[in-house]
């Protein structure tokens, strides 16, 4: 279906011999946010990294707007339109803020306003102030903004956000949440990995729940919200409740 931004079919991933992701399938509709949930170690990051082509041993199909990207190299997947904000931010700490954005710039996509450094600075004015600073010297919240800005510079058709609120102060979590909402309002399709259940429930349209590498739920976010048993069993703590 062409209206699916991302269609994942039977995705498997291994680290060495350990089979970390087993037959995961889900779809993300264009312009929506899909929350990818699960306990620590459930395989959320492995899923995101596999979509990006960064897990060496993987199998299954990943289609981006109908086009298979499963076998491509990470740089090609990125150029086809998947953007990654990795867990732990992983900004290039020895580069300046501006350089972090500059190296990630990719050609614009037809029919969408292109991101550029100025627009990123408008989205995160704090980054403009710190433009010439080494990225590694910034606070965690600022690094998270930079990681998001860096991914946007590639004009992604689908944005993968892996725990963007992890380890951040509540005020910053709220700011990151508002940014995600704004991106969505501009039509950005997003896969959001989130431990903070409230953030996820507020923002997402649909949800996928992983437990030890298997997909135990894929459906609307409302059904997750109302299903205390599902939450208790698969997400453990009532994060944010």
């Amino acid at each position: 279906m062409a209206s699916d931004a991302l269609a994942i079919e039977g995705l498997n991933a291994w680290y060495g011999d350990s089979h970390v992701l087993q037959d995961v399938s889900f779809r993300l509709r264009d312009g929506e946010i899909l929350a990818l949930l699960g306990r620590n170690g459930a395989g959320k990051s492995t899923c995101v990294m596999s979509l990006m082509g960064l897990v060496a041993r993987r199998a299954g199909d990943v289609r981006l707007f109908g086009e298979s990207v499963a076998r491509l190299a990470p740089e090609t997947i990125s150029r086809r339109g998947i953007g990654l904000v990795p867990q732990g931010r992983r900004i290039f700490s020895t580069l300046t803020v501006r350089e972090n954005l500059l190296v990630a710039k990719l050609p614009p996509r037809a029919g969408r306003a292109a991101w550029n450094i100025e627009r990123i600075y408008d989205l995160f004015p704090r980054l403009r102030e710190r433009e010439r600073q080494l990225a590694g010297s910034m606070s965690g919240g600022e690094q998270q903004m930079l990681a998001i800005g860096r991914a946007l510079m590639g004009n992604p058709r689908v944005l993968l956000l892996d725990e963007p609120s992890e380890g951040l102060a509540p005020l910053i979590v709220a700011e990151v949440g508002r940014t995600i909402a704004r991106l969505k309002s501009e039509g950005q399709s997003i896969v959001l990995v989130e431990q903070n259940l409230r953030v996820a429930l507020d923002l997402a349209d649909s949800a996928v729940i992983l437990t030890t590498g298997r997909c135990v739920y894929a459906g609307s976010i409302e059904d997750v919200r109302d299903n205390e048993a599902l939450i208790a069993q698969n997400l453990g703590v009532f994060g944010g409740h």
């Binding site: 960064l54 990125s78 953007g83 990654l84 580069l95 350089e99 991914a151």
Partner: peptide, 16 residues
């Protein structure tokens, strides 16, 4: 320098 810093992420942001 980005590649020296974090190779997998450099690739993930589209650097060849």
């Amino acid at each position: 320098r980005a590649g020296v810093d974090d190779m997998p992420i450099a690739r993930a942001v589209g650097i060849r």
